[in-house]
């Protein structure tokens, strides 16, 4: 069990709502999550499950009409929800960093690489001189395997992998404690992706980083993450140690996800395809949100009662799952009481 000093960032009962033409939708629904110091936590889920919304909300970034309607965000002993926008801005880029999905579009096309870096540094450390910042930028870029001279280039003159390393450099520019990487490898090809993931692991040790890796790619998580959290229809359904989750998934959705990945060996030989599609978040199904697609659905429980997100019976505190297969059924509880 992790002690509170081990925990760098703690999300408590976070709900994010946004408005659409079909009414108010909960993009993140009552999610609680702890990120430990120095770990790489993988957050997986399908498109539309709310994982990116969660990532942006953790930085309190404005995201369209999305609003945090309830919950607490504890970062290193501070509740971010109580900070002013100004204080929040000071944290972004200096202690909380973000790496976006598409490095092509996340760098300003008319700004040189070095200007991106020095601008970030000078925003947070105004007493640094231009030369200091520039020197540090060159050093950093070189550490990440880009030649020093290339800092004068514009983003369009660099390859996808190089640009993604620049994005990392931006997060490292002021030694961020937590880096939220939102689908950082999706737009990279496989070889560049592998190199990038190796670099990520190296940097974690070297700079003492904590990384939240948001992805829809289970393979990426298997490669680098220490722990994994699975998100489905705006809610967390399972969290646990990466080896344990991959060997013995508890939630039927996690199981389905793993079975549908071709290169991870599970007992079934043929490639598995999950039934149905994720629910429309403007009117999610009652009870457990996964029940319409669940092969183990129990008629008298799952469509009616929302399962708690808690450690399963007899397991350690580190693992949590939201599934009635692993919790005492509500009827039984009622009868027992």
């Amino acid at each position: 069990m992790a002690t509170s000093s081990d925990i760098l960032y703690s999300v408590r009962n976070l709900t994010v709502e946004y408005e659409t033409r079909h009414g108010v939708v909960k993009g993140v629904d009552d999610v609680s999550l702890d990120i430990r110091r120095g770990e790489i936590l993988g957050l997986v889920g399908e498109s539309g499950s709310g994982k990116s919304t969660l990532g942006k909300a953790m930085m309190r970034l404005r995201n369209g009409s999305a609003r945090i309607t309830s919950g607490e965000l504890w970062f290193d002993g501070q509740n971010l929800m109580e900070l002013s926008e100004r204080q929040m801005r000071d944290l972004r880029g200096s202690r909380l960093g973000m790496v976006f999905q598409d490095p092509m579009t996340s760098l300003n096309p008319v700004q040189r690489i070095v200007e991106h870096l020095t601008e970030t540094m000078l925003t947070h450390e105004p007493e640094w001189t231009e030369e200091e910042a520039r020197a540090r930028a060159e050093e950093l870029v070189e550490r990440l395997g880009i030649r020093r001279e290339r800092v004068k280039d514009y983003p369009h003159q660099m390859s996808g992998g190089m640009r993604q390393r620049v994005m990392i450099a931006l997060a490292l520019a002021l030694n961020c404690d937590l880096v939220i990487a939102d689908e950082p490898t999706t737009s990279l090809d496989v070889i560049v992706e592998a190199k990038f993931l190796d670099l990520l692991k190296e940097l974690r040790d070297e700079f003492n980083l904590t990384i939240l890796l948001i992805t829809h790619n289970i393979g990426v998580v298997a490669e680098v993450a220490d722990r994994v959290a699975v998100m489905y229809a705006a809610k967390l359904v399972e969290i646990g140690d990466v080896n344990q989750v991959f060997e013995k998934p508890l939630h039927p959705y996690t199981e389905g996800l793993l079975k549908s990945v071709p290169n991870i060996e599970l007992d079934s030989g043929a490639l598995y395809k999950m039934e149905g599609s994720p629910p429309d978040l403007s009117s999610p199904p009652p009870g457990c949100r996964f029940h319409p697609r669940c092969p183990y659905m129990m008629e008298e429980v799952c469509p009616i009662y929302d399962p708690p997100f808690a450690p399963p019976e007899g397991a350690s505190e580190d693992t949590r799952v939201a599934c009635w297969l692993h919790h005492p059924h509500p009827q039984k509880v009622a009868i027992g009481a």
Binding site: S47, G48, S49, S52, N63, P278, L281, S282
Partner: peptide, 10 residues
Amino acid sequence: LPVQDQETAV
């Protein structure tokens, strides 16, 4: 909104 979320919203 991020692309993923837009798919369900629009």
